[in-house]
Every structure is written in structure tokens, then in C-alpha cells.
């Protein structure tokens, strides 16, 4: 098992686990927002704006993982092609 194989495996693990966390988080956030909108339809605008911001924040975690994966795949400092 050389560095390249480890890098590919790490990238897959990073994206996979990052996706699990942010997927759960986004699901809960959307469920909470739906609940809130159903309870108070008049403040739907504020809720959806805050929801979008929150979703982007959560998604950032997955994006971090994706960036790490991309770095490992395409810009690995330990691999000298």
C-alpha cells in the first residue's frame, strides 16, 4: 500500500463521513424550519433566510471534507508525480 492508495482511500473516507454528518444536520435543520413555518407562516421569510444561511454553514463542513479530498487527490504534497 503506497501513499497514492492511502490518499485515495482517505479522500473517499473524508467525503463519505463528512457527507453523513452534514446530511443529518441539514435534515434536522429543514425539519425544524418546516415546523416553524407551519406554526408561524407569517414569519416564513425570515425563517427561510436563516435556514439558507444555516444550511450553507452546515454544508461548509461537507465542503471542507470535499476540499480535503480534492487536495488529497489532485494536490497531494506527498505525491511527486
Amino acid at each position: 500500500m503506497n501513499v497514492e492508495m492511502i490518499s485515495v482511500l482517505s479522500a473517499a473516507i473524508a467525503v463519505g463521513f463528512g457527507a453523513i454528518g452534514s446530511g443529518l444536520g441539514e435534515g434536522w435543520a429543514v425539519a425544524g424550519a418546516m415546523d416553524a413555518i407551519a406554526r408561524q407562516p407569517e414569519s416564513a421569510g425570515t425563517i427561510s433566510r436563516t435556514l439558507f444561511v444555516g444550511l450553507a454553514m452546515i454544508e461548509t463542513m461537507a465542503i471542507y471534507c470535499l476540499v480535503i479530498a480534492l487536495l488529497l487527490l489532485f494536490a497531494n504534497p506527498y505525491v511527486h508525480a
Binding site: 450553507a56 454544508e59 461548509t60 465542503i63 471542507y64 476540499v67 480534492l70
Partner: peptide, 16 residues
Amino acid sequence: FSLMVRLAGNIMSHEL
């Protein structure tokens, strides 16, 4: 840093 990485990561990953 997260501001920077969030924007670039989103756009770049979507491009990819």
C-alpha cells in the same frame, strides 16, 4: 478562513 474555503470550495467542487 471558513468564509474563504466555503465559497471557493463550493464553486470549485461544483465546477469539478
